[in-house]
Design a binder for these strands. Sequence first.
DNA 1: TCGGAGTGATACGGATACGTTTCGCAACAA
DNA 2: TTGTTGCGAAACGTATCCGTATCACTCCGA
Lengths: 222, 222
Amino acid sequence: MSTSTSINWRSVTRENDFMPDAATVATDASGSFEQDPRVERSRRIILEAVLAELGDVGYGSMTIEGVAARAGVGKSTIYRHWPGKLELVEDAFRTVKAELAVPEHGSIRDRVVSVLEQVADLVAESTYSACMPALIEASERDPSVRDFHCRFSTERRAVLVSLIRSAVESGELRAGTDPEILVDALVGPILMRRLILGLPITRAIATELVDQLLPLASTPAG
Amino acid sequence: MSTSTSINWRSVTRENDFMPDAATVATDASGSFEQDPRVERSRRIILEAVLAELGDVGYGSMTIEGVAARAGVGKSTIYRHWPGKLELVEDAFRTVKAELAVPEHGSIRDRVVSVLEQVADLVAESTYSACMPALIEASERDPSVRDFHCRFSTERRAVLVSLIRSAVESGELRAGTDPEILVDALVGPILMRRLILGLPITRAIATELVDQLLPLASTPAG
DNA sequence: TCGGAGTGATACGGATACGTTTCGCAACAA
DNA sequence: TTGTTGCGAAACGTATCCGTATCACTCCGA
């Protein structure tokens, strides 16, 4: 490493232990430092291939050579920028997007249904869904993947938690409702179907969950 | 195989495509056919080692040699009885026990709390818990593991579902309650904490879940 | 006692993946 | 244009695991 002038992305983005001469690099809005567009292209292609491999063969069976072959790049291009499998997987997961849009208007029931339908769509079919088993497996083996995974999941959950919490405070939901437990009770069944029960996931499930579980203050008995 | 007189456990227990001379073998209550106690001992030791390996390194990274070393047996002893990794893992998972005892008396609230506390204990720490990520991963890669996993989980779930259903029918729980959704809402959060959120699992969580989610007919507003 | 069967150890050839190195080519910045 | 740099391809030695085969030993049932 000390004799190389190439950029190790992981070092740059996570530890800042190497910084190219500030006068010679451009810093874009997303915080990446690139001189040569070939680098960014390789990075994107490789990380996409990592996610595809993780979805196909899982964490334990994923190999650098398999990723290189899938990405259509040389093995050396991967080793040039990442120390090993672990850091590669970490970076790959960081590119996963699972954004949830919260409607600004409407009843709490309809707003929660909307968000939960997005969750159902995401879990039913997405890059994230395909990688979930591999992500759970990798989290079990490596603490830094675990940290990332937990932070990722908790941030997604926070969107729904704050929505529920504000509805409790405004009186739309029954007082005494624990927002975090309620959110887990809404989202948990969807994940269970995907990971444990092997049952299909539809948008209708989102509606059923909300109507069964949401403790509406106006109609406490359903 | 056709020249061997040894017993392939998988064949015997799953496909019945080989049956030793009935006059020379003993059939015990659990349906296993054994002449030589060495066989049963090997089987037990090996399958225990498989579960330990699965918990430690996961499905993709588990190797026959690793299992043999851990079990303290020769590799040949494993290959003598199982065709390969897949069948070995399937048999290993079949030995996992996760029984739930349902109290016969008490309020529905207390009975559900009792069962859910058992679930929490199981998910917090058990052989099953240790193997869950590997089981989820293996289910994703192989249909027969998936079938087993889904059946296993669904049978456990059925215990709680029937408990809830009978409470709905007896009027203890609010009419209109969907037993399956409610059970998933109770159990799902526990699995989420274990697999996704990385949060601790305590018995207190079982109580909180029940008191937040159980739609008691007598006190519909909690 | 005795023959048969299961056992652990060991070795094998083949395959795969590791991480490194070298090399000529093409894309890049200046 | 020119020097630099990232690139893909290939080969390298090492290590691991595959699935099979052999062997001497020991345990078992008859």
